[in-house]
Amino acid sequence: PDAADLRALARHLYEAYLKYFPLTKVKARAILSGKTGDNVPFVIHDMKSLMEGEQFINCKQIPIQEQQRQSMAPSDALELRFFHSCQSRSAEAVREVTEFAKSIPGFIDLDLNDQVTLLKYGVIEVLIIMMAPLMNKDGTLISYGQIFMTREFLKSLRKPFSQMMEPKFEFSVKFNTLELDDSDMALFLAVIILSGDRPGLLNVKPIEQLQETVLHSLELQLKLNHPDSLQLFAKLLQKMTDLRQIVTDHVHLIQLLKKTEVDMCLHPLLQEIMKDLY
């Protein structure tokens, strides 16, 4: 494809990204840097503020059986409830990523089984990359930017909840130094989704061809958008390796939670994705 085609592809994916992802990096950074006027996020930094902040977390709750809830310590129930809210938001985010994937030219023409495989293996990687713009070294925006939850608070939760977010913070702080903007992110997410080495793919060639075109578009985009940032394309591709390790560790933690938490009930969509994943 010539440069004009690659630019058109970049524009198309950026438009799809804006259409399907409600909290962009531009918006998130404005909130994090206090440039949104009176519209400041509610800060959750301890159990009391978590309780107060629950009303902001506008997600469908997965009910915990009343009896079990009564037999639990109040803070344990609160942690589980919060974890369930996170799951609901993650399931919604999977839907957004699916819509974005479908907007990648050629994606819906792939074998339907391969579309499922690409999403199954790609979606958690995409969600972790999309967390980065919401994070800084001190905490993360959640609930569409209405809440800022501190990193210290997340670290203070009981194990293994306390271990869930710290690797994402470490990754995100480093990833954010690359200073990608939303239009770069759109292309990078498409590259991740179109990974031809996912286990069980039936027809790898068309996936690799699609990915190659998006990779060319990303390379050109980075040259134009970040002319002074040397080796940015190579650095970004390197992140894909780190990302796989983070997803593997994340899935193992969720599997551990499933074993250790009697009240743990995994969202059916997330269950589907994580079953036999790694």
């Binding site: 469908k60 609901s88 399931a91 919604e92 999977v94 839907r95 699916t98 819509e99 479908k102 819906i108 339907l112 089984n113 579309q115 499922v116 495989t117 999403l119 199954k120 069980g200 969202h267 059916p268 969509l269 589907e272 994705i273 079953k275």
Partner: peptide, 21 residues
């Protein structure tokens, strides 16, 4: 694979994604 991933499959098939998550 489609059988084991019914919700993902539904999300892929429905253009407006009215799947009840």
């Amino acid at each position: 694979l489609k059988e084991k991933h019914k919700i993902l499959h539904q999300l892929l098939q429905n253009s407006t994604s009215p799947v009840d998550l």
